[in-house]
């Protein structure tokens, strides 16, 4: 899929959930996509899911709360903590506030919910569902791919576990939300074998479990395509074989690393396309030493070009 198509399709969705193996930059992409949506005039909510230390705080200079806070024009930011999501959830399924408090103040109930299989996932998913009702687009910074799978798969488990009652009904609704064509999953990957394999495995597993209404979008982060000619690579190889002093070695090694990264990008691109049936969207690496805000802004600017937004329109201070 071309970058233009991918980004504009994502901005056409109601719910975009961003996941990936740890360390790939999924939080960065969630932030960048939310910024782009807001710049396009969509009422957008960006959320992190039950994190103790929200990682986008330094990017937007706001500590997110369960109730979304406005951080930029058309852009709100929330942290769906489990405790507050639980409160909101119980409120939404029991008739009166007094009864909600009665339930939640009972110590046994606390433990019961703390341990009941999937109760965390259910209430968090439910909170996401509630936000989707209120915004044009909700962008979720999901847990890393393994945990993201259990979060999405929870509707299936809940339908197995709860044979009647409002939880079952809610699980059915959430299953509908996940199966909606305007719900899209985004995977952020790196041109590294382990990351690419985990991406392929998670996508295939989600497909097998019927969790994907449409193909997800895969961003291959820090991607640089091969740029050396065969002759250049041959010379680099001969230099590497030659006796090198420390300084010379450093230069040759720098070149070899860049070439290896480029080859890895090409290989990852081919492998993802072959295994998934669609190709990744390539995004070049950020300049080293940038702050988290610089990095999110950089990705937003790059992806923004695909939907006709200029750097000036995307950047924020």
């Amino acid at each position: 899929m071309s970058q233009d198509n991918a980004v504009s399709q994502l901005l056409d969705s109601r719910l975009v959930m961003v996941t990936g193996k740890g360390g790939t930059g999924k939080t960065t992409y969630a932030g960048a996509l939310a910024v782009l949506a807001a710049r396009k005039g969509l009422r957008t909510c960006l959320c992190e899911v039950d994190v103790q230390r929200p990682s986008l705080t330094s990017v937007f200079r706001v500590e997110p709360k369960f109730t979304p806070v406005r951080i930029q024009p058309d852009l709100d930011f929330a942290n769906l903590s489990w405790d507050e999501a639980l409160h909101a959830y119980i409120e939404s399924v029991v008739p009166s506030r007094r009864v909600t408090n009665l339930i939640l103040s009972n110590p046994v109930v606390g433990r019961f919910l703390d341990f009941t299989p999937g109760s965390r996932e259910m209430v968090v998913l439910s909170a996401i569902g509630a936000l989707v009702e209120r915004y044009d687009l909700v962008v979720v910074d999901m847990p890393a791919s393994g945990h993201a799978f259990s979060l999405l798969d929870i509707t299936r488990s809940a339908l197995g576990l709860f044979r009647s009652g409002p939880v079952r009904q809610r699980a059915t609704e959430l299953k509908g939300l996940l199966a909606d064509a305007r719900t899209r999953l985004v995977f952020v990957a790196l041109p590294e074998e382990m990351v690419v394999n985990e991406t392929v495995e998670t996508v295939q597993k989600m497909r097998n479990f019927g969790l994907l209404a449409r193909d997800p979008v895969v961003f291959l982060n820090r991607a640089t395509l091969p740029s050396l000619t065969d002759a250049e690579r041959a010379l680099l190889g001969r230099l590497w074989e030659a006796p090198l002093d420390a300084t010379q070695r450093e230069f040759v090694l720098a070149g070899r690393w860049e070439d290896a990264l480029e080859q890895a990008t090409a290989h990852s691109q081919t492998h993802l396309a072959a295994q998934l049936g669609f190709g990744p969207v390539l995004v070049p690496p950020a300049a080293p030493g940038g702050t988290p805000k610089d990095i999110v802004e950089g990705v937003a600017v790059t992806l923004g070009r695909a939907v006709g937004l200029t750097r000036r329109e995307v950047a924020w201070s």
Binding site: S227, E232, L235, R238, Q248, A254, G255
Partner: peptide, 29 residues
């Protein structure tokens, strides 16, 4: 750093390749 060495190991590879590889290694470094 590498000009002389590249000249010796280049063998049958064209001059142009030596220049472009050295430029690239400079940037990579």
């Amino acid at each position: 750093v590498l000009g002389k060495l590249a000249g010796t190991v280049r063998g049958d590879l064209p001059d142009q390749t030596v220049a472009s590889v050295l430029a690239r290694l400079g940037m990579a470094h």
